[in-house]
Design a protein around this nucleic acid. Sequence first.
DNA 1: GTAATAGTTCCAAGAAAGTCGAACTGTGAT
DNA 2: ATCACAGTTCGACTTTCTTGGAACTATTAC
Lengths: 103, 103
Amino acid sequence: MTATSRILAHPDVADVDLTTVLFALSDPARLELIRQLAAQGPQTVAQCQIVDPDVPKSTFSHHLKTLREAGLVRNEPAGRQRTVTLRRAEIDARFPGLLDSVL
Amino acid sequence: MTATSRILAHPDVADVDLTTVLFALSDPARLELIRQLAAQGPQTVAQCQIVDPDVPKSTFSHHLKTLREAGLVRNEPAGRQRTVTLRRAEIDARFPGLLDSVL
DNA sequence: GTAATAGTTCCAAGAAAGTCGAACTGTGAT
DNA sequence: ATCACAGTTCGACTTTCTTGGAACTATTAC
């Protein structure tokens, strides 16, 4: 009973590093996901995955982790599922114009 | 006499890929170099290197190659030396706001 | 011509990242 | 309670990136 929390760690906006963000965005699959989140708003992980139906869950989850740890997305429990949200306002405040230029 | 040209290949602006650019900028040393070029204009390789005097020539040259192949900088012969130039206008035209947001 | 200078390219070793199957965990439904 | 479901984590493997010494090339200076 190792009460493993479903709540994942998210960096504070102030701690978000630019080069880490740029790296996270430098992968085509990850950039595409960010674009979809920007266009369609929060989604479950399964919904996100529809973009690339062939990529295994574990691979997708890893990309999600990279984006989350970079500070770009939130990944929070929502019932049996999880909601993925682009941290738009926070990123815009920290790096004005960056998201606009890549979307 | 294998006439090895000193002229290096530079991608056309139209062929510059966003994820490649983001990757090139995702390294602290490379990003710093871009910032210096933006602030101080064209420089010789040696002048660029003053930012990080401890890094070996070969390592620095490799970073320069990454930036050049990504389409971010020009690297052209200038007498015995070489001039490194930020391709500001071209990048701004291709990805408006991107450079502004990272500088 | 010879030597010094400015840089790139080559090569090898170590570090980091991507990929994906399998095992695991928490939640909701029966 | 039990089962199915949604996702994450673990572990191993492969690939790519980074790093830096050594060799090489072109140019200018003498």
